[in-house]
């Protein structure tokens, strides 16, 4: 009797298995959270040193236009104005996303609704391949093909926001496309069937049903692409020109947050203002990527398909 009672009271094999499963997955998530917290703490603690130890005013940092962290300006304040880089970073990111989105959505529609077979066999592997091309190679193709082309068209040096936009457009295209494919695939098939059954043409179905139903996730795809573009460094650095000047038009040399960071971080001494100021740029990048993510979540929440 006792034995049976024991057996009944003791956790079953299945529930013991479940506990193990839970432990494994909880451990993994704990490790990841530890990693994330450590890198966030690391960047934040270094990034705010500009303001706490070097006493640069935050307002001046965000709105100043002079960037010479090594030298002091006339009034004895260090020249760390990040505005030109912030403006440029946003410009290239938004422009690249604007250009890439129609192409990416076309590619996604082609792969989900127009020619799924060719899409899956040919287009998808090639697009995945694009992700693996090192940014250096993109940068050099930009430097040897895109920059001379722009120079030829508009004169000047050819480096600038336009060149950066073109390079980033190609780089974010795979990201946005593959996420857009996911977004369109997530629209239930009966949406399509219902629309077609009502006599709608394929384009009417796409335009009035598919794109609308998938809109939140499509937006998410675009924002993901923007986050990727915002953080890209090596490729942009080669074509943007790296001159910390306010961009007057699309073809004058200017500098993004990442290009400045990558160019100079190896040349500065840790713990000094020039180095701290670069970490502050990294902190801006981090905060921006946080904003992008919150946007994604907000949009995602508003537009969940309720089935």
């Amino acid at each position: 009797m006792d034995e049976i009672q024991k057996k009944l009271n003791a956790p079953s094999k299945a529930s013991r298995e479940d506990v193990i499963g839970r432990i494994i997955s909880y451990t993994c998530i704990a490790v990841i959270i530890a990693l994330v917290v450590s890198i966030l703490y690391f960047i934040t603690s270094r990034g705010i040193a500009t303001f706490t130890t070097n006493h640069v005013s935050l307002w001046q940092f965000l709105t100043g236009k002079q960037w010479n962290p090594g030298t002091l300006s006339a009034n004895g304040q260090p020249q760390v104005g990040a505005l030109p880089m912030i403006v440029t970073s946003f410009s290239v990111t938004i422009l690249a996303a604007l250009v890439a989105t129609p192409f990416a959505i076309a590619v996604a529609l082609f792969m989900t609704d127009i020619a799924p077979k060719t899409g899956a066999k040919f287009l998808q592997p090639v697009i995945e391949l694009l992700v693996g091309i090192p940014s250096v190679v993109y940068g050099f193709i930009g430097l040897t093909v895109v920059v001379p082309f722009i120079r030829h068209l508009f004169g000047g040096t050819g480096s600038g926001i336009l060149a950066g936009t073109i390079v980033l457009f190609v780089m974010v295209l795979p990201t946005i496309s593959s996420l857009a494919v996911d977004a369109l695939r997530a629209v239930p098939t009966y949406f399509r069937s219902a629309s077609l059954a009502l006599g709608a043409t394929r384009f009417q179905t796409i335009y009035k049903v598919l794109l609308r139903a998938a809109m939140p996730r499509l937006l998410t795809a675009v924002i993901f692409g923007m986050a990727r573009a915002f953080g890209e460094a090596l490729a942009v650095q080669m074509v943007i020109g790296n001159a910390v000047l306010m961009p007057h038009n699309l073809v004058t040399p200017t500098s993004t947050l990442t290009s400045q960071l990558t160019t100079n971080i190896g040349n500065t001494i840790m713990g000094t203002l020039p180095n701290n100021a670069l970490w502050s740029l990294a902190l801006i990048l981090l905060l921006m990527s946080l904003v992008f993510n919150l946007l994604i979540r907000y949009i995602g929440k508003r537009g969940e398909i309720k089935s």
């Binding site: 499963g21 839970r22 494994i24 997955s25 909880y26 993994c28 998530i29 990841i32 959270i33 990693l35 994330v36 917290v37 890198i39 966030l40 960047i43 986050a227 990727r228 915002f230 953080g231 890209e232 460094a233 090596l234 947050l257 990442t258 960071l261 990558t262 971080i265 990294a282 990048l285 981090l286 990527s289 946080l290 992008f292 993510n293 919150l294 994604i296 979540r297």
Partner: peptide
């Protein structure tokens, strides 16, 4: 597995997701 099978749909899960996603857009040099 945690996120898709165990986690509840609440702010904590959202926070974890955001935290993981933030990693992807960090500049690689950082």
């Amino acid at each position: 597995i945690y996120l898709s099978e165990y986690a509840g749909n609440n702010w904590r899960t959202g926070l974890i997701r955001t935290a993981i996603e933030v990693l992807s857009s960090l500049p690689s040099v950082v």
